[in-house]
Design a protein around this nucleic acid. Sequence first.
DNA 1: TTGGCAGTTGCGAACTTTTGCAACTGCGGT
DNA 2: ACCGCAGTTGCAAAAGTTCGCAACTGCCAA
Lengths: 144, 144
Amino acid sequence: MSCESRAIDQLRESGVRLTPQRAMVLEAIYHNDGHLSVDEVHERVQQQSPYVDLSTIYRTVMFLKQQGVIGELRLDGQPVRYEAVRYGKEHHHAVCSTCGAMIEIDSVDMQELSDILTQKYGFAVNLIHLTLTGQCAACQAISP
Amino acid sequence: MSCESRAIDQLRESGVRLTPQRAMVLEAIYHNDGHLSVDEVHERVQQQSPYVDLSTIYRTVMFLKQQGVIGELRLDGQPVRYEAVRYGKEHHHAVCSTCGAMIEIDSVDMQELSDILTQKYGFAVNLIHLTLTGQCAACQAISP
DNA sequence: TTGGCAGTTGCGAACTTTTGCAACTGCGGT
DNA sequence: ACCGCAGTTGCAAAAGTTCGCAACTGCCAA
Ligand SMILES: [Mn+2]
Ligand SMILES: [Mn+2]
Ligand SMILES: [Zn+2]
Ligand SMILES: [Zn+2]
């Protein structure tokens, strides 16, 4: 039982096609703790299967993100990165625009927001791995 | 007194250089109600000054976004778009992944979130023109 | 008002990401 | 087990975005 089996089940239940390429991308991302760039995913997949094209990686990460099994991290001036969405470890990020520090925000801290959107707009928001910017505590202390 | 004068004041106070290119990009975006793509901004700027390069537009929208005077809208499968950040009209967007409907979310609805991040993480979040995805009320009624 | 310079621009080239398309294949139905 | 086809892939080419660099210019200090 691999660590991405829950994600695979989720894909099966959605009725989408589970190709070897998709399984390999999923494996590359789930067998890693950090956030991987598209190139890094490509390298890892190619070690298993050298003819998988970079365009397939692009198409696949977009697909897996829309399916909600991987999350995206966009910091400007950096390549886009992807990470596993692990059950019970859902989180978001707050990035300091002064020092670059990246804080992990627990998913439960967004519950209030989710409730407001439901009550006020009837919108069922799907909060997956958001990236927020601002200033960390240390940098606020230095420049107010 | 043009409608982007507040943004211009904000840039002056930040001590950054106010070039004609920056002023023209600001004007193009502020003299428009919707969200403009980089190409659309370029077209409008070129009508005033034909030799402004597309790379300058890319650099300038990145700069103006970091300064907080314009907001970004990224919908996947669509070009990135930019919009004026107008005082008193700050907002975010909720986009339905089923039908594509785009709802405007009032900035005050994020106040709770901002407070939580301050209290729990000491992080001063800078919430500018976020894009959230999920399902609108109509689409929830159809497919639960 | 002028001079100096750090920051900005236009341009071309490099690099990244998306797309069109023919061949291929997962998977549901038989 | 096999078939049929909608959805997926590899490849090549197009489109979109970034970058390096020499020339230029806002802006500040004198
Ligand atoms: Mn993460
Ligand atoms: Mn908007
Ligand atoms: Zn910081
Ligand atoms: Zn909808």
